[in-house]
Write a protein that binds this DNA or RNA. Structure first.
Lengths: 131, 131
DNA sequence: ATCAACCTTCACATAAGTGTAAAGCCAGCA
DNA sequence: TGCTGGCTTTACACTTATGTGAAGGTTGAT
């Protein structure tokens, strides 16, 4: 598909898709006329990239972990580059840490919201009911 | 405590502490001589701020959720600003989303690492043993 | 007096976008 | 045939967020 369709289907603006290509995160084939041609699986791929960037993973790192996310569960490289392996382990640990931080803080926010809601309803304020 | 001690104890460089103050995330009292004076609980606070920024939460948002993290579990505002409440709910949901994205991708990385390790050991490569 | 820790301020750096102009491609249609 | 409109291309510049470096000055302890 071309860039416009991918924009529609992935929700990622064409402008960003070109930017991500510049950053080496996606490298679509080119048609004879120079237009970018994207494979089907890239719809999910670019959504995933968005999520990762949004979660504080820099593009430089995302480039490294992309091979882990191959749609057509492709060949794991025969012999592992030990440097890459170490990068992956580090990044896995960093992600675990982010998950912990986010969980803790989300829970704190949740408790705070509940306290506010309780306080609000005690005052007769209109609040959404628990489901 | 002064900025140097906070730098030591929180691991956040003094330069950044001043920057976060500029962004309105911490507002230490001032001594007569103009030096910043930080309360004890800010040691944890600034570490939390670091974690949140690192997890892709912009400072503008962090400013909003800081009240949720009060050390001396302070007064929940008597009447809830419904706008703030909505911001909090949105941010809670966004954080949940980030957690999901990170978890999924971390698991994919973990599987990939294991595949690499297996492939490596099959080739006689030296690898760390499972504990 | 000297020296480290602190102050402000201005400037620079990097990442991740975002705007947009000027041109190329192509399908439909008079 | 040639025009029009929509999609696509590159290229250059601008913006915002998050820092970082360093100059030049003040404070306080020894």
């Amino acid at each position: 598909m071309r860039i416009g369709e991918l924009e529609q289907r992935s929700g990622v603006p064409a402008r960003m898709l070109r930017y991500y290509e510049e950053q080496g995160l996606v490298t679509p084939r080119r048609l004879d006329n120079g237009y970018r041609e994207y494979d089907e699986y890239l719809v999910d791929r670019v959504a995933k990239i968005r999520g990762l960037i949004d979660s504080g993973i820099p593009t430089r790192i995302i480039g490294n972990i992309l091979p882990c996310l191959n749609q057509p569960q492709r060949v794991v490289v025969d012999d592992a580059d030990p440097e890459l392996l170490e990068i992956l382990r580090q990044e896995r640990d960093r992600m675990t840490h982010k998950i912990d931080v986010l969980s803790q803080n989300r829970d704190a926010i949740t408790r705070y919201i509940q306290a506010l809601e309780t306080a609000g309803s005690r005052h007769g304020t209109r609040e959404r009911q628990p489901a």
